[in-house]
Amino acid sequence: MFALPTAVMHASNPSGPELRLTLKSQLADLTLVWSWVEALAAHHSLSAETQFAIQLCLQEALSNVIRHGYSGQADQPITVECASTSRGEIIFVVEDHAPPFDPLAHPHAGQAPAPASIAELEPGGQGIRLMRGFAHRAAYQRLPNGNRLTLAFTLPH
């Protein structure tokens, strides 16, 4: 578990892209994430690999919130905040108002052994494994009225 350093959080950033993205809980809104992350990646001169990892983790995290956290209920709020830290990381904080849902505690959170055959492979169970694999750190926090998932990625030196 690690806390978001509030000193580096800004709701807006006059010299670069917006640091906060607000979505509704519908899969169509996931398209908004692409261009937002592209703008942030350009601003921070992120490598293609880091940008890919961020896109992947956010797509998985947000689709989890939409499909499982809100159980497909549309028009519920989700926010994503971006901040860079003095530890040389870029972090993304996903918050929702859904019932308690800790994706990192899910059986597919990366600890489960890889399937032995394609017949055993659970096709829907890969998102959390991918988040675990592509984020440098991931932490969950239950909020009084929602959930917070923090994903950290190391910036190139």
Partner: peptide, 20 residues
């Protein structure tokens, strides 16, 4: 240029059908 878990599913399910 991008592959997420739902994209994986779109590969795995047809592959499973062919293998079966």
């Amino acid at each position: 240029d991008f592959l997420g878990s739902m994209g994986l599913r779109s590969i795995v399910l047809p592959a499973r059908a062919v293998n079966s």
